[in-house]
Design a protein around this nucleic acid. Structure first.
Length: 458
RNA sequence: GUGGAUGUAGCUCAGUUGGUUAGAGUACUAGAUUGUGGUUCUAGGGGUCGCCGGUUCAAGCCCGGUCUUCCACCCCA
């Protein structure tokens, strides 16, 4: 009996109509990357466990898809291992490879391994799928594409500015009204210092990142759970709830963080970035959001996050600066900064807001009907000529009923049908049918290309 | 990993207090129309009612388990 086919949880098939829309997103992002001088690379779908584990925090390790070793993977597992090892320890014995979790860590590995083949500062873009063993839900998949642009080997804040310009250009091209939130990890570190809890920086950032979502009361509860003193929380609350213009927030924080050297460095950085962005034309809205933390532990400077304004969806772009990501792979003191567009969420946003352009659905421009062997052979001559003029065209592969061939053209959304039957051949003519208007007319066979070109350019 | 919903034709879904042979729309195939698509009409094919077990004379419907998908939490693109 035939089994019912399925695909793994959180994965998807893409039909042609969907792929055309997805390609539109990838093409748009890629063209913006290239326009800013970024170069393409690719890395393998799988990395060694060593490369990935421990780079994304404890939660991240759990969400990495591990690949079972080939062959006799069980021979070095004892019953003692089974009884006593943690799941993570067992996984380490059974798996030496895993699917990549993002594009940034593999990129760091790539940079170290290929440091003699690339020119610094190195600007690369990378558009590939990543995998996370998360529970799927709205806007969240287990296999999804990231579109990353990173620049590594340069400390200049001009790189941050350039990435903001890229973000602005991408969303402007796609027609998405977006808001870019900026913060700086050094400011968060500074805040942790001045409230007297420098060791709790991770707990603090994770908690205040949720301020928007769960409110100040629940943030306070979470911080108490994590062991912060009441005194520290009392100091923290007015800081993370600072309101006003970007400049007002910067001014307030300059006073608050005066005693923290690293905090003041963060203020200096964000002021610089924002002052330059302000002087440039842009369509995206910019906000300095003190509660923006982002989970990834490796960020050390600027952090970015983009959300669509008119639709409820997680972030559609994220990124930041990391000062020493390559250090763990043996290349210390190389700073990088990058952003990552979530193509699948961008798709969902465009779909929900009906923002896909109308004209990206057509593929073939002309379909030749098939009247039999003789006529089909003759049609081939015209197909070749049309293709020489980059007009996409095809011949219906078998001499089916005309009704069926017409229906095929209709279903495929092909705008023109060329009819080359016995009558046309005898009179050296071709009948063209415009499938949108239903209009049908006869032309001389040497007028075919100019006629189609005229219609397509209208 | 935690909690809540869900599952009936390829797709979207009806299906009464449990009662003969499970329906509709859409899609598909053919015909009305032998060289013409979209609209219309007619006919046809297509279902182990997610899976396993239980209750019952009788289960798509009730009960238990399991899987799937979706939603939320954690976390994240």
């Amino acid at each position: 009996m035939a089994q019912k086919p399925t695909i793994p949880k959180g994965t998807r098939d893409f039909i042609p109509a969907t792929m055309i829309k997805r390609s539109y997103i990838f093409d748009t992002i890629r063209s913006v990357f290239q326009l800013h001088g970024y170069l393409p690379i690719e890395t393998p779908a799988m990395e060694t466990m060593e490369t990935l584990m421990g780079k994304y925090g404890e939660e991240g390790d759990r969400l990495i898809f591990k690949i079972l070793n080939s062959g006799d993977f069980h021979t070095n597992i004892t019953s003692k291992n089974l009884a006593e090892d943690s799941a993570a320890q067992l996984a380490n014995k059974l798996c030496e490879k895993a699917l990549r979790y993002d594009l940034t860590v593999p990129f760091a590995r790539f940079v170290v391994q290929n440091q003699n083949n690339i020119k610094f500062p190195f600007k690369r873009y990378q558009i590939q799928p990543v995998w996370r063993a998360d529970r799927p839900q709205k806007g969240r998949y287990r296999e999804f594409y990231q579109c990353d642009a990173d620049i590594i080997g340069s400390n200049s804040l001009m790189n941050e500015v350039e990435l903001v310009q890229i973000i602005d250009a991408v969303y402007a091209k796609l027609g998405i009204a977006a808001i870019l939130k900026i913060n700086n990890r050094k400011i968060l570190t500074g805040i942790a210092e001045v409230i007297g809890e420098p060791d709790k920086i991770i707990d603090i950032t994770v908690a205040i990142d949720k301020l928007d979502k769960i409110g100040i009361e629940n943030v306070r509860k979470e911080l108490i759970d994590k062991g912060l003193s009441n005194e520290s929380i009392t100091k923290l609350e007015p800081i993370i709830q600072l309101d006003g213009s970007i400049q007002e927030k910067i001014d307030s924080l300059s006073t608050i963080l005066k005693s923290s050297e690293i905090g003041m460095k963060g203020i200096e950085e964000i002021s610089y970035i924002i002052s330059i962005i302000d002087s440039l034309p842009k369509t995206i809205e910019i906000d300095f959001d003190i509660s923006l933390a982002r989970g990834l532990n490796y960020y050390t400077g600027a952090i970015f996050e983009v959300k669509a304004r008119d639709v409820e969806m997680g972030s559609i772009c994220g990124g930041g600066r990391y000062d020493d990501l390559t250090g763990v792979f043996g290349l210390p003191h190389v700073s990088g900064v990058g952003i990552s567009f979530g193509a699948d969420r961008i798709y969902d946003v465009l779909e929900q807001l009906d923002l896909f352009p109308q004209n990206i659905t057509e593929t073939t421009n002309v379909l030749f009907l098939n009247f039999g062997d003789t006529e089909a052979k003759l049609s081939m001559q015209y197909l070749i000529k049309l293709r020489e003029h980059t007009i996409s065209c095809e011949l219906y592969p078998e001499p089916a009923k005309i009704k069926k061939q017409m229906q095929y053209a209709n279903d495929r959304n092909i705008p023109f049908v060329a009819i080359l039957g016995e009558e046309e051949i005898a009179s050296h003519k071709i009948t063209l049918k415009n499938m949108k208007t239903g209009e049908q007319y006869s032309i001389k066979n040497n007028e075919l290309i100019s006629n189609i070109q005229n219609h397509l350019s209208q």
